[in-house]
Amino acid sequence: MTIDIKTQVIQPKRQTFKHVADRLGGDRAASRYEEATFDLQPDVNFHYRPLWAPQFEQFDRRRTAIVMRDWYDLKDPRQYYYATYNIARARQQEAADSAMEMVERRRLLDVIPADWLETVRFCLLPLRHYEWGANLNNAAITAFGWGAALTAASCFAMGDRLGMAQLLGRIGLLLGGNTETALIAAKTRWVEDPAWQGLRRMVEDSFVTEDIFELFVAQNMAMDAMVLGLVHDHFGAECDRRGATAIPLLLGFAAEWREDNARWVDHVVRVAAAEGPENRALISRWAADWSARAADALAPVATHVLGTAGGARAMEDLGGRFAERMVRLGLA
């Protein structure tokens, strides 16, 4: 039936929804990202106070000290909506699966010297609990944040961090000869080993951080910069030097994801800081504090992996790069 008139010109009455047109400055064709994101979160006329936080509205801008004229300025530069997000990750996961299969089939882990393999287990596997913490924090941002632009992206980040925790878990299974042993040992390290306690304490402190934008900066900018920087830049390079190229190969997805995620994080931070001096001061302080704490917390792990001098150099490098990033994002 449609065939009959599809050759005829049917003029649409409007190109997009009104709230989207208002943001685009006129009724023009909008992207799927824009239609799926703009104004999606209810912002007025809430019926009931949450039983679990009666001091707040159901969604409440006062969940953070950061003030935005329009929270939909915090767009996702990747323009992810559910479909594009999942399709992107499925593709990356497929590549990760082939990498893992190749490592398994060609027994690439077998050529890694035993002592370094032990270091790999020490450094890499407890981080799945760090990722799990990052998952929890992004769930908090999704639950308590303001505006679908920020909270849809944080929901995707929540899924990502579970994916990363499980990627590390699968590497742990490989490193444990397809048994759970390496992962059990890693959890014991995470909970008991003195070298890991600084990081675990910081992660647990982040869990009880109440300002939702501080949590965003702490987790997605500061802690990630140090932890993921140490893993992918320094530890990864050391793996290459030690003939353990299989490890960076297995971490390929995680490394690629880290850059993808940082594009989003940097954009959000840059725009929020540019909103005004109060925002800039707050974000700068949070970024400086949490990154300094993260550097201290990670130092024992860095030392364990790279030696005293090497560890110190790595932390210095990460600190220097973080300072540059702050400048680049307009932070003081």
């Binding site: 878990g169 000869g177 759970e180 959890k187």
Partner: peptide, 26 residues
């Protein structure tokens, strides 16, 4: 050398899920 791959035990769906998910909490 320490073997990693040589003992190919198949992990069941249930176990794999438990290890990769339930093992994350502390």
């Amino acid at each position: 050398r320490e073997t990693t791959m040589n003992v190919q035990k198949k992990i069941s769906l249930k176990d794999r899920y438990r290890i990769l998910t339930r093992g994350l909490d502390w």
